[in-house]
């Protein structure tokens, strides 16, 4: 990590510099008359390009200020606060993530234990992912909304659908990862299928499970955001995006994006910490 610090910082710095530079031509449509009115010159160009009220491309410090204003400067449980919207999105993300994870694990366990399920079900599990579920999310949301389920479950169903696939694939691999020698040992102990599953297969599959969960949690958040788009944009990160795009409020979009990105990174980081801890408890070498 330390070895990579300098390159990462360099690349990040380069991106920020390019971002500031890109603001000048991108915002030229709006700023050219103002700069001319102010008498031109480099100082005026920069000042106007980087501080437009409704910019085409907001500058980094504008985004940072907007995030500060909507996260820290307002009470967290009001409609103006991004924390409130993030919580709405995160709650349905987590519900979907847990349901999808459980569904994935259950499917994997039944596939591993029943040979014909693998042949009949597995191709459909894979085919289910060639359907762009995010694209049909609005219809699912509207249809499920009519069944009278709580809102959070209809939104979470999208995340569930996205989540179960990586978990199923990873867990099928993981549950099969113990080698023949270990399975034979279980047989000499006269262990039945449930005991083999509990004492050998599940522990062996943990690394695979965590790798899949990290993929899942990221797409669960994406699913939750997209699921919010068709519900009339009331609350949540997706609603902020849609609102911002309707009213041309670019700052709001960028702020929502960065907060969502931060949340995704945090969730992945949390999972990898959990992975480290559990693998350590199981005696993995550091």
């Amino acid at each position: 990590m330390k070895r990579n610090l300098l390159p990462i910082l360099t690349v990040t710095l380069a991106i920020i510099v390019m971002w500031y530079l890109a603001c000048i031509p991108m915002n030229a449509v709006l700023t050219t008359p103002k700069i001319a009115a102010a008498g031109g010159g480099l100082a005026n160009t920069l000042a106007y390009s980087w501080n437009e009220v409704r910019p085409v491309l907001p500058s980094p410090h504008q985004v940072a200020r907007e995030i500060w204003n909507t996260v820290f400067a307002v009470a967290p449980w009001t409609i103006k606060s991004l924390v409130y919207h993030l919580w709405i999105t995160l709650s349905s993300t987590l519900v979907g993530f847990i349901m999808g994870g459980l569904l994935g694990i259950l499917l994997a366990i039944s596939i591993v234990h029943t040979a014909s399920l693998e042949k009949s079900l597995m191709p459909w599990v894979i085919a289910s992912q060639t359907i762009p579920i995010l694209a049909i999310a609005p219809m699912l949301i509207v249809v499920l909304g009519k069944t009278g389920l709580p809102d959070i479950f209809t939104k979470a169903s999208i995340s569930t659908y996205l989540c179960f696939f990586p978990v199923t694939i990873g867990m099928v691999k993981g549950l099969r990862s113990p080698d023949v020698m270990q399975q034979d040992l279980m047989r000499t102990y006269n262990a039945n299928a449930a005991q083999t599953l509990w004492k050998l297969r599940l522990p062996a599959s943990l690394p695979f499970l965590f790798a899949s969960l990290k993929v899942s949690v990221a797409i669960a958040l994406t699913g939750a955001i997209v699921a919010e788009l068709p519900t009339g944009a009331v609350a949540g990160i997706g609603a902020r995006l849609l609102n911002g795009s309707y009213y041309g409020n670019t700052l709001q979009i960028w702020a929502a994006l960065f907060v969502a990105a931060f949340a995704a990174a945090m969730m992945v980081w949390l999972l990898s910490e959990l992975e480290k801890q559990s693998l350590k408890r199981m005696g993995a070498k550091p």
Partner: peptide, 18 residues
Amino acid sequence: RRGLLPLGNLVAALPIVG
């Protein structure tokens, strides 16, 4: 590579549809 790869891994986890 050492600069872009961690960044790419981070971006892969982000909700890019946004």
